[in-house]
């Protein structure tokens, strides 16, 4: 199925959790914060939150800034 992640179309498997998807991108779930359809998802919810076709995911983290 297709989802939108950080504004780009991405392929994800049906039944994949937010946590599994983050790991599939080779990212550490502990270092990112996620919005699912513009709603904040707590870290403890990553394993239980399932992706849905067409869902919009934002994966965000701290970067250098003033």
């Amino acid at each position: 199925m297709e989802i939108i992640c950080n504004g780009e179309k991405k392929e994800a498997t049906v039944g994949m959790s937010v946590e599994e998807f983050i790991i599939s991108l080779k990212l550490d779930p502990e270092t990112v914060v996620v919005e699912f359809n513009e709603a904040l998802v707590g870290r403890d919810e990553y394993p239980g939150k399932m992706l849905e076709p067409g869902c919009r995911l934002e994966i965000i983290r701290f970067v250098g800034g003033g």
Binding site: C5, L25, R61, F62, V63, G64
Partner: peptide, 9 residues
């Protein structure tokens, strides 16, 4: 200070 941005996939 730090900023928040989308991860570059």
């Amino acid at each position: 200070t730090v900023a928040l941005r989308r991860v570059d996939l």
